[in-house]
Design a binder for these strands. Sequence first.
DNA 1: GCGCTTTACTGAAACGCTTTAAAAGATCAT
DNA 2: ATGATCTTTTAAAGCGTTTCAGTAAAGCGC
Lengths: 348, 348
Amino acid sequence: MPYVMVQIPNSAAPATPQPRSVPTSADVARLAGVSRATVSYVLNNTSAVRISEPTRRRVHEAAKELGYVPHAAARSLRAGHSRLVLMPAPSVPIGPLYSRFINELQWALSRLDYTVVQYASVGLRGDEAARAWAELRPAAVLVPVGGIGPEGVAVLKRSGARAVVTLGTERIEGAHSLLVDHAGVGRVAGAHLYARGRRRIGVVVPEEPGLKVFSKPRLDGVRSAVEGTDASVTVLPLAYEEESAARLAARWPELGLDAVFAFNDEYAMLLMRALQDAGVSVPDDTALVGADDLVLGRLLRPSLSTVHIELPAGRDLAELVDRAVRNPGAAPETHHVHEATLVHRDSS
Amino acid sequence: MPYVMVQIPNSAAPATPQPRSVPTSADVARLAGVSRATVSYVLNNTSAVRISEPTRRRVHEAAKELGYVPHAAARSLRAGHSRLVLMPAPSVPIGPLYSRFINELQWALSRLDYTVVQYASVGLRGDEAARAWAELRPAAVLVPVGGIGPEGVAVLKRSGARAVVTLGTERIEGAHSLLVDHAGVGRVAGAHLYARGRRRIGVVVPEEPGLKVFSKPRLDGVRSAVEGTDASVTVLPLAYEEESAARLAARWPELGLDAVFAFNDEYAMLLMRALQDAGVSVPDDTALVGADDLVLGRLLRPSLSTVHIELPAGRDLAELVDRAVRNPGAAPETHHVHEATLVHRDSS
DNA sequence: GCGCTTTACTGAAACGCTTTAAAAGATCAT
DNA sequence: ATGATCTTTTAAAGCGTTTCAGTAAAGCGC
């Protein structure tokens, strides 16, 4: 048994009575001695209708006394649309960079009065996920790279989603796109290594399947950076485990590489350790570049060169979403996010 | 400008027509030539009513042709309850451990036919967050430590939530509790260091405010481990930045510590680097213990001793939730999660 | 006192779905 | 043929909210 979950008997265990049903606006109306319409007008501050101050107060008091909370489903059913924005919950542990971006985005969207919700599509394949999302009738859906196809976008739009925005490496028909230039990350790393005189360049590609969508374009970016030169690119599959790294390092002499771009800083650290343990000197024998600019990289010895990538401000993406929701007929926008810059430290 | 967002004009920009409204079950009924009730029976496989095979097929075909997706809000409005489980979205970047736990939990809950959704309560204070959650009328809410008070629990229950489960370090009145024994983490670390003959023990406490809820009990755990002995405990505030660590390391001689428990592996690495740069030898001068057992720790030299904590299997928590939803009257359960174990490596 | 506007409110319909109760067809015993 | 029983389908109510259209009551100019 991998863990222990012990139940502690609670001191006072008053099987909560609570058969009392949840208060509705009708209950508030009854208590305040007004109609449901009036309650709605007061609680929503409807500007088109004037309600006298005494009535207003009575309604507020009644609502407070009953602990009234409006029913979002009923509201959006009546309204015909929701202010729900659906985001994918990252299923792979994602770095502080992305985490900060998500927070910012959520904050900005809630400023604009949207309800942001993260939705995990564990075990659902493409279309199923889109259907599950569609049931919630969101105003907008932000889709991660690879999470959905054109049919999925169609399902969502047909179900009333006013904006579908994909974050990823390629456009999807019918959706707004925010293209994160992962290829640019690889390109910057490749160009840097080439400029430092390296010619036999290895590229670490994680074996973890969820990361393929990031690693593939980064690899392609390195390739494109050295295309037409005398440099070569070697693909190095690597699992995020010590043993895998040790195996790779053991093959180092036969690989004959003088540089590696390691997908990101974590894989870079894993590999650097294994190389050092195997007697390979960084950067003398082999230069090493990571990506994502984690604090981690500054702590390594030699300190790790890395590619810093600037994500868009959450506020700007929030505005794109809002614009799209307000004007759903407009043609899909495609934005490119770039600014991958190399941070040169001691490892290259 | 910290980033660039360039709009690329789309090749074919066919301002999507799509004034077509979203299909409802009535549309399906019309197309299939049956009543709305029949559609509902067919699509929900209602066992109490038998529908003939030809009718069944016609309905399915009509639904498919229209691309019908049911309206979750309407459904749960009618049903009077939802199968929605609300979880907090971690606002601080959280490690792979917790991330795996979340995934497992989501998977288990969706097996039980719940819809799991992560909700960020950015900028909402206590009660407001509870109200926002209550609007969604979830069947259950999982609340992070410190995210809600007893009044919040009351709001949620009054709005029909059948289960509120808190994950954290302390019980909250009226809610089921899953107590993660952070104090145990500190206790194990403290006991280990004491057993290794260390007597002047420092405890790193992150200055990042969001981490206080974890760090406080871990600190207390160390204290309780050495209570009544000749060992002393010194609190060491540390921000997750190189400079902060360097400042702390510079004070090392005057602090006169022979051991440190560093809150977690990341802070441990930060501190280890700073100590080594300042000429303090680990573990000879000062022993160092982290927590969370990240891969990272195995890669450091000396390799990092750490406290491994086993989170509950998501499946078990899912079952607790399901049990609570099925039987909302039952007295709140309190579970203790423990099994903090020390992984002894070279740094202590 | 009569029209007219303004103010302050209310009644009722509608949103999309499920489910109860009942109605129509079909099958069968008498 | 006449109910009786079973099978298949339907009409209608209701979940909690918002909002359109309407209605008394009051204010105003004459």
